[in-house]
Design a protein around this nucleic acid. Structure first.
Lengths: 346, 346
DNA sequence: TGTCAACACGAAAACGTTTGCGTTGCCTTT
DNA sequence: AAAGGCAACGCAAACGTTTTCGTGTTGACA
């Protein structure tokens, strides 16, 4: 087990100074060709690689970016990570991930662990609990210490930083409009409670779409699911709620669900009630996850281009890191959504 | 934008030496109570946090572990990561992830990026290309340089290190036995080409189960899918193959698929051919992903306990890191599989 | 009054780099 | 022969810590 070789060891072995070795390896013309070759040969032989930590300390930058997300076992987030990793690697950066598990305190802890020199900047999506408590001091403090943050998807106006979001409102309008075009008269929405900003926006898009088409929005057609309970009952409760929705609104012929799971579950319940998809009820979901693609019938969805979001976030952050301290100019990039038509619509 | 405060700045401000500040903060009794309080108050005020990079350099350990996986947009791998992250954080470690994207060269590059001081050890699952080329020098070299590796799921005998695997053979035997118990007489398997070790093992388990039940294995019932092509056609090809399988073996009443997607696709094709599940054909898959749970009918699977694998891997690695250089004793932990019965079996 | 221990603190090395600048020795130039 | 120039290298600082080993100042004690 040979330890990693350092400049010092090479220097001692070759009887020159450390600086000479360093310069020789970087092809400085201060060093004679003789010594340069000698040093480089030796370095190659012993497979010398500069120690990253030492470099980080010297350069005051680590060339790694920190990601904090609420959950990794989630198609959307892992796709975002893939996007981030893609451009990060291309530009010579590493990524280190922290999971908040939707908890405020874990988010704070994780950020503190990373903010002390381990990384150059953050890319993150806010946890539900933080959203609920509306306590954003850890973000603003980090930023004020000179560490840039890029937020994606779950963002918040109170914090000034670069942001990458999908146009939830427009996306859901598109979805509902699609349902209307395909002949739906009575469209229900299955959404989340309002404190999740994306849920709120998507609901709003639904309402606006109805409004613009002169369809009256009915409270009974709006199902707001409380997704705070993560337990197994969650699904059962969800199914019951949806069943009630269908039964108290017999004329529903279109469903817009703000995520994949709700959509799939809606289809399941509909089928159980003897309704055919898409003949009797058409369904559109949000997020193009793996479920939508492989469900039967496959689900028409509003695609969020998760990987692209990740790529954009990384570009934004790295540009920020490598540009000379510009005048605190923050931008918000909007990723367009796209309807992917599959079998759950006519 | 105030830069992060350092020991040196505190020292200058309070007109004491750096060492005094350091000692005061660590509550050394060398320092008088007066100075201690003064320093600590100042540090708190300016929110002093020791610089991680400097600590890493000094201690020659980074307290972060590197993960290299073939793909992150994958339920199994992201669940493993969650497990790793869980115990890593609990024990004061961070995780930094690299994606090989199933490519040999990216695996090598990624490992080299991290091996130069950024991390203390690796947890990884080998890429398909590496498995195919059987070139493991980057693993052995890393290990011989004193950096421990824990491999999970996709492991290889040629490399000596800690390993965490699932009992693929036993797991698939269990699956096939379950099918037999439930009355299946003609069981087909949908598997991968043999170079993916887990595919090979699972096929072997299938054969052994049949053998032990005195059922003759038929080559025509074994479908080996070439999953090298990742393209969209993949699915089409798969469907065609499965359709052929069903049509040339009309009496198939049980399907064992080595992964979720194959199983779901098999169900889809079966239904298209007018077969009912589980009445006419029963299906069991491997891996309990999100598809299995939410498919209709939901899929009976062999659960691999991915999160537990991650936890075990992390425990193994960290123990290795924190124990005094023991005598190169490597262990292989086997995670038991478990059949999760759902609607695709009787 | 001289000695010694205890106390409170500072200097410096170390971790592994990079780099500006100083220092040799030798050759050229006038 | 003296001065200047250049090639080739070493010194030392810096990044931010921790820690060992001084060192100076007390006070107590003989």
């Amino acid at each position: 087990m040979k330890r990693k070789v350092t400049l010092k060891q090479i220097a001692r072995e070759l009887d020159v100074s450390i600086s000479t070795v360093s310069k020789a390896l970087r092809n400085s013309k201060e060093i004679s060709e003789d010594t340069r070759e000698k040093v480089q040969a030796f370095a190659k032989l012993y497979n010398y690689r500069p120690n990253n930590i030492a470099l980080s300390l010297k350069n005051r930058k680590t060339k790694t970016i920190g990601i904090i997300i609420p959950e990794i076992v989630h198609h959307f987030f892992s796709k975002v990570i893939r996007g981030i990793e893609l451009v990060a690697n291309k530009r010579g950066y590493n990524v280190i991930v922290g999971l908040s598990n939707e908890s405020f305190s874990k988010e704070v802890i994780n950020m503190e662990m990373l903010a002390n020199g381990s990384i150059d900047g953050f890319i993150l999506s806010i946890s539900k609990e933080t959203l609920l408590q509306q306590d954003y001091h850890h973000f603003t403090e980090t930023i004020s210490q000179g560490m840039p943050i890029v937020m994606f998807d779950r963002v918040v106006n109170e914090v000034l930083c670069d942001k990458v979001i999908v146009d939830d409102l427009k996306g859901s309008k598109k979805a509902v409009n699609t349902l209307i075009e395909k002949g739906c008269k009575t469209i229900a929405i299955i959404t989340t409670k309002d404190y999740v900003s994306v849920g709120k926006l998507r609901t709003q898009g639904y309402l606006e779409a109805l409004n613009e088409n002169d369809i009256k929005a009915l409270g009974s057609l709006i199902l707001k699911v409380d997704d705070k309970l993560v337990s197994e009952d969650h699904l059962d409760v969800l199914e019951k709620d949806i069943e009630t929705l269908f039964e108290s609104n017999k004329d529903i012929d279109g469903i817009f669900a703000v995520n994949e799971l709700y959509a799939i579950t809606a289809m399941k319940v509909a089928r159980k009630l003897g309704l055919n998809i898409p003949e009797d009820v058409q369904v559109i979901g949000f997020t193009d996850g793996v479920l939508s693609k492989h469900a039967t019938p496959s689900l028409t969805t509003v695609s969020q281009h998760a990987q692209q979001m990740g790529e954009q976030s990384a570009e934004l952050l790295i540009n920020n890191l490598e540009i000379e301290e510009d005048e605190d100019y923050y931008q918000t990039v909007v990723i367009e959504t796209e309807i992917i038509e599959r079998e759950s619509t006519k």
